[in-house]
Design a protein around this nucleic acid. Structure first.
Lengths: 155, 155
DNA sequence: ATAAAACCTTGGAGCAGGTATAAGGTCAAC
DNA sequence: GTTGACCTTATACCTGCTCCAAGGTTTTAT
């Protein structure tokens, strides 16, 4: 099987396959005298393994680690479990962040009824005043030291 | 305020501030004769605006677009609303994906009780057999054409 | 037999959104 | 006058690809 066919079977780009080969995630295939890569079904399985792990959100380094376990089946599998646990944690972290984000965006969305000049748009006002409050929080005693007026770029 | 102080107030890296300046997201500050950047509180507000939008998941291009509305307060704000709506869609998409992922990872996690040799680990077996099934699905009539044995790299 | 289409090869650049480094200049304190 | 903490620039690196150019090969159609 040539690289294009492998790519079609796996549902990825041929460039991705070459990339995985360079990165050591895919066995180097036999090369025809023309230099063309010739793949076997076993390569397809290996590629699917990588793609599936990617789809589960693992990094290439983690997938490489999993392949290390495949190559070394008598090693204790605690590392595999840790890797999965870390992945689960990451997903739950992201979910938490996204839920908060969803709420914040929904609240923001409610601030405007679509047909305002931008200067009166509740969304813009909310974002701008949040930024100002952040700034005030961090500088609790503004001594009017520099300027609170408009910014002046270098002359 | 020097860049390090601004960075501390905003809770980001000085490199990030220089990067935002290069990308046109932050006004160029006055430069002291030494070449040092001198920031005002207004810069802190602007930086916080950018960081807050980033934290909401917006791209730098989108933030630039929002700044365009800030600079042009009489423009109609429909574009702002669209931008926010797109962002909400993106977040909900990601949430969907992550929920599926969470389930899949949890199912995977249940496959192993931690103290196996890797070759017997249910997680590895599940991943490997999924990859094989993917391969079989895509090649429904395997004519034993090349080889289903181990992969042979180029000789 | 030949020409066009459809493959394949390599090397390199580019994306986002930064982070890290090196090599050097400045400034306040002791 | 020297340490140490800061600042400057330019450049490279990170992840996980994607896309491009310039060229070689193979298949298909005429």
């Amino acid at each position: 099987m040539l690289i294009g066919e492998l790519a079609r079977h796996a549902g990825c780009d041929a460039g991705t396959i070459r990339y995985y080969e360079r990165e050591g995630l895919l066995q180097k295939p036999y090369r025809a005298p023309s230099g063309y890569r010739k793949y076997t079904d076993a390569h397809l399985v290996q590629l699917n393994f990588v793609l599936r792990c990617r789809a589960l959100g693992m990094t290439l380094a983690e997938i490489k680690a999993l392949q290390g376990f495949q190559a070394n089946p008598s090693a204790p599998c605690a590392g595999i479990n840790e890797l999965i646990d870390r992945q689960i944690d990451r997903i739950q972290q992201q979910l938490k962040v996204l839920h908060v984000l969803e709420e914040q965006m929904a609240a923001l969305r409610c601030c405007c009824e679509t047909n305002m000049p931008a200067g009166e748009c509740g969304i813009m006002k909310a974002l701008a005043s949040a930024a100002e409050n952040d700034a005030a929080d961090k500088k609790p005693h503004p001594k009017t030291e520099a300027s609170t007026g408009p910014m002046e770029p270098s002359p």
